[in-house]
Design a protein around this nucleic acid. Structure first.
Lengths: 228, 228
DNA sequence: TGTAAATAACTGACCAGTCAGTCATATTTT
DNA sequence: AAAATATGACTGACTGGTCAGTTATTTACA
């Protein structure tokens, strides 16, 4: 056991003590969420977090057992927030189109206000920590299941076309994420949600019957996209 | 400075020599692309690449100046492949819906055969190397522009509804990516493309006029996105 | 034999996590 | 009320390991 050497002259620490597990932890989460949304997991160092929070590195380890756990806690924290909002909404008994519309509104609104988590959640990092992968996959699957439920309901009610439900859910998931993430606009979250709903609902074709079934030569002829 | 010691007895290298910059480089790219698609940039080490390629680490540096450059070259390599396919297609003068349909087919087909690049390109790692960010953004913007072009054409022709084109392009981009990435199916790429086209084209609503305008209590009435 | 290609030991920077020690405050003792 | 003692939040130098990139040396072959 090495004897700790006398500390060489250091700047006097200027500390405001707080009761543990109260504000400190939240403060760390808040600032770290911001950092993780700006840079990748590996590019955020514990030293940097400590510096930004204004605390010594060791302190972080009093509240979080590891970097991974800190990361995961941020995710879980916000995930529960949106999930409980959605839960409340699906419990209601609106007709399916209405339901979808409202769900979209909630999602758009929430992520407008939580862009940092969105950025973290939306990274398709199927890598990183195993737990992170499992977490985001779980989150994705759950959201898709939600869309599937609504679509099934709509088809039963006769308000939705009997399309391929699995595919359509996946498609809605992706489209929502993409718009949230990249679409820059001055419009309110509600308006954007409504616009998105419109496209999903009606599609883009002007004349439904006329143009749609022209080219049905799938899989067969020509067009042999040999990759380069 | 430690003198490099005499090389201690080592397994005799069993090498098939090739002319430089020929097969070697392609081989490295191929195997590394696979690795990068399985793990994140930071989790793939140069040592691992060397081992998998069956070559000494130093050798890789004869062909690529750095890890970043190697990564970027993989991206560019495949990017050009798909881009030239798309280029050929948009040069044709099909009506817009046809065009969109064909583009979707090309994209789905290409990425079926190049799942590894898709995985790399699709990571929303707005982080990592600056150049990687710029590359994927450039790639995304370009693809979105392509959709915008087709949509504009369609609106002019009267085959597409005058929706919010920027939003719709973004939406198509996201939806395509999501389906390519996550949607598991036995169907051919062409069939999947066709299904996706159907949803984009017709939407999911069974009765276009009846259900759509029920809930218009959104903040600002004026919603200029009149889709009909 | 000369040189291009390949090797693998080596270096140095970086970083997550540790732990001996500090110090403001709370509690107990005198 | 003052002094002695205990508490625990906080600190930051340090460690052990990892990894991108370098370089001295060896090998293949024209």
């Amino acid at each position: 056991m090495a004897r700790p050497k006398k500390r060489l002259g250091k700047k006097a620490p200027q500390i405001t003590y707080r009761s543990k597990s109260a504000t400190r932890k939240e403060e760390i989460i808040k600032i770290t969420a911001q950092l993780f949304s700006e840079k990748s997991y590996h590019d955020v160092t514990m030293d940097e977090i400590a510096e930004k929070v204004g605390v010594a590195k060791g302190t972080i380890y009093l509240y979080f057992e590891s970097k991974e756990k800190l990361y995961l806690e941020i995710l879980e924290d916000r995930h529960e927030a949106i999930e409980s909002l959605l839960e409340k909404e699906i419990a209601k008994s609106d007709p399916a189109p209405q339901k979808l519309r409202k769900i979209l509104r909630i999602i758009f609104k929430f992520y407008r206000q939580n862009l940092d988590v969105l950025r973290i959640l939306s990274r398709d990092e199927t890598h990183l920590i195993r737990e992170h992968y499992e977490f985001t996959e779980h989150w994705r699957l759950r959201r898709i299941k939600l869309y599937e439920k609504i679509l099934e309901k709509g088809v039963k009610e006769g308000s939705f076309l009997p399309t391929n439900i699995k595919l359509t859910s996946q498609l809605i998931f992706g489209l929502v994420r993409s718009v949230m993430f990249f679409y820059k606009t001055d419009k309110s979250a509600e308006e954007t949600a409504e616009e998105v709903f419109s496209v999903i609902a009606r599609g883009i074709l002007a004349n439904q019957d006329e143009e749609n079934n022209k080219d049905k030569d799938i899989g067969s002829k020509g067009n042999e996209v040999n990759l380069g």
